[in-house]
């Protein structure tokens, strides 16, 4: 099964979409990147990161360093959350 290939996301593409479509478009691009780092938790981490502003998410898609930093933050929050469950 071949992964879907998406063209890079631009601010104008996003602006033309509805809010929930915007998150979907970002999520579809974010997920494979996160999945490469944390296969098992990719769905949850992507879900967490989608709560961030779209403008910041766009920057993260273009900057592996920013993305890695946010993924690390999300992981820590997730572990903390799971520890309190």
């Amino acid at each position: 099964r071949e992964p879907a290939v998406y063209e890079p996301l631009s601010a104008s593409m996003l602006a033309a979409a509805l809010p929930h479509e915007q998150k979907q478009m970002i999520g579809e691009r974010l997920y494979p990147l996160i999945s490469a780092l944390h296969t098992q938790l990719a769905g949850k981490i992507t879900g967490m990161l989608l709560e961030i502003d779209n403008s910041e998410l766009l920057l993260m898609l273009e900057s592996p360093e920013s993305l890695n930093a946010k993924v690390q933050e999300a992981l820590e929050v997730l572990q903390e959350h799971q520890a309190t469950e």
Partner: peptide, 26 residues
């Protein structure tokens, strides 16, 4: 608590409509 039913965070699945944002104002 058995930790098997953690409702947060909402999980994103590729190709599945994202439902994690129920609090977006129209």
């Amino acid at each position: 608590s058995n930790g098997s039913s953690v409702s947060w965070p909402p999980e994103f699945h590729p190709g599945v409509p994202w439902k994690g944002l129920q609090n977006i104002d129209p």
